[in-house]
Computed example of a mutant assay.
Amino acid sequence: MPTGELEYKLAELAAKLDKPERENLKLLLSMAAGGLISGHASTDDREAQKQALDIAQKSLPLLQRNPKHAVPDGIVHIGRAPFFADDDLEALDKESRLYRSHAKRFHNHYVASDAPVAKEIALSSAINEFLTDKVGPALPTNKANYLYYDSPGLGIDPHVDKDVFSLNVLTMLEHSGARKSVLKLYPNGTTPITLELQPGESLVFLADRVTHERTPTTGDENIRLVSFGYAIL
């Protein structure tokens, strides 16, 4: 079978699965893509690795609901977001500092959830109107997490997010110190888009279909972000 047909066979299989089974299939494809990007392949055949990664990357979007408006590379917005007022960013920055002591380690970074200010802002009409205009109706999933990468070696391996973060609004609150860690997106295979968000800037992207990673922190580097999750209807 030509490799160009395999992603559609996987999509046909996914259409016959229930939601938990589709999530498991998505997880397997995400792990495959992440492993190949990280160089953890069981073969030294570079062409086979490239083909396998290409299939995994092309299959992931086919397993998801499509936005009402085309977002070819999965990136909706990069930069200062029009839906955040200065007061919003100040409130998120303040709350994220207070909630650092509540954060729990999750793999190779720290996460604090259930912070009231973040949850309230995630439900704002300004964000809803922006997302609806860009991708069509999107439902808040009540997921608003503060993320902390504030000691050497913290990061997150290449992955895609679960359905509750199918549309992710990720906002930088602080990046101080060594500033070596970056966010990498892999919308089209092995060539990454490298982002160094400045405090107050946001990335809005289709996180359940674009493989992404945070490279490890070094030295005195300190990163704080807030992540809001939405589901595309």
Rank of each mutant, 00 (worst) to 15 (best):
residue 53 L to E: 15
residue 55 I to Y: 10
residue 56 A to M: 13
residue 56 A to F: 11
residue 57 Q to R: 15
residue 60 L to F: 15
residue 62 L to T: 14
residue 64 Q to T: 15
residue 65 R to Y: 04
residue 67 P to R: 05
residue 69 H to M: 07
residue 71 V to L: 11
residue 72 P to L: 00
residue 72 P to K: 02
residue 73 D to R: 07
residue 74 G to C: 08
residue 74 G to M: 01
residue 77 H to Q: 04
residue 79 G to R: 02
residue 81 A to W: 08
residue 82 P to A: 01
residue 82 P to C: 01
residue 87 D to C: 01
residue 88 D to M: 02
residue 92 L to K: 01
residue 94 K to E: 15
residue 95 E to G: 03
residue 96 S to G: 10
residue 97 R to W: 09
residue 97 R to V: 07
residue 101 S to T: 14
residue 103 A to L: 03
residue 105 R to T: 06
residue 106 F to I: 10
residue 115 A to F: 12
residue 117 V to T: 04
residue 118 A to S: 10
residue 131 L to R: 00
residue 134 K to L: 10
residue 134 K to I: 05
residue 137 P to Q: 13
residue 139 L to Q: 05
residue 140 P to K: 10
residue 143 K to S: 12
residue 146 Y to L: 07
residue 147 L to P: 00
residue 149 Y to V: 03
residue 150 D to A: 11
residue 151 S to V: 06
residue 152 P to H: 13
residue 152 P to N: 08
residue 156 I to G: 01
residue 156 I to N: 09
residue 156 I to Y: 12
residue 158 P to D: 12
residue 158 P to K: 09
residue 159 H to P: 02
residue 160 V to S: 03
residue 166 S to T: 08
residue 167 L to H: 04
residue 169 V to D: 07
residue 169 V to S: 00
residue 170 L to T: 02
residue 173 L to E: 05
residue 175 H to K: 14
residue 175 H to V: 02
residue 177 G to N: 13
residue 179 R to K: 15
residue 180 K to N: 12
residue 181 S to M: 05
residue 181 S to E: 08
residue 182 V to P: 01
residue 182 V to E: 13
residue 188 N to C: 02
residue 190 T to F: 08
